[in-house]
């Protein structure tokens, strides 16, 4: 019988305690904010959407290799010595590869940040932009290459012409060691 009254009292008592707590919260400062108008600061190192700076990218493809989900798609064309543009990179060094395709599929990206750490030229960076949703999957594929399709065609043609010439030259002087091959790295 005592237990019965005790438990009835406990019901009543603990409910009052709970009501007191919620009542004090009724007038406390609110923690939510009006999101698109005001927002909490995002730290500068936040790992959100990736951004490529094409003039810094040397086309080494390390990012594409290290990506755990294979969301980065890179294609390069060799810069031939006869190129009229004489391209330089952002840091002033001679460009060795044209980056004709650099696509990132953000539907696949897992924001692990591995690509940014392996990049030797710091061409790929995480930004603090997280509002890039899209209605289509294609809308989430970002094309970062700075080259237009005409340019790509032109550079491809240049490379083909050059490599055909090289081949011919090679075939001409088999005995001699070939001219200095410009490797990828």
């Amino acid at each position: 019988m005592i237990d019965y009254f005790k438990s009835v009292w406990a019901w009543f008592h603990t409910i009052l305690i709970g009501m007191k707590i919620t009542f004090t919260h009724l007038f406390s400062k609110k923690v939510t904010i009006q999101y698109p108008n005001e927002r909490y600061p995002i730290p500068h190192n936040a790992k959100n959407r990736l951004q490529l700076y094409p003039d810094l990218c040397n086309g080494c493809m390390q990012c594409a290799r290290v990506c755990p989900v294979q969301c980065i798609d890179v294609e390069t064309i060799r810069v031939v010595p006869t190129d009229p543009d004489k391209p330089v990179m952002g840091d002033g060094t001679q460009r060795k590869l044209w980056v004709s395709v650099y696509d990132i599929d953000f539907a696949k990206c897992c924001f692990c940040g591995l690509c940014t750490t392996v990049c030797p030229t710091e061409a790929i960076k995480h930004t603090t932009d997280f509002e890039y949703s899209s209605y289509t999957r294609e809308g989430l594929i970002y094309h970062f290459s700075a080259m237009s399709s005409e340019q790509v065609e032109q550079k491809k043609k240049l490379f083909e012409e050059w490599s055909a010439k090289e081949k011919a030259a090679k075939a001409g002087k088999v005995a001699e060691p070939s001219s200095v091959e410009k490797g990828e790295n």
């Binding site: 919620t22 919260h25 609110k30």
Partner: peptide, 13 residues
């Protein structure tokens, strides 16, 4: 509104 204020939210705004 009351539920929002009790839970430290703003509620519909």
């Amino acid at each position: 509104k009351i539920s929002a204020w009790i839970q430290e939210r703003l509620g519909p705004m």
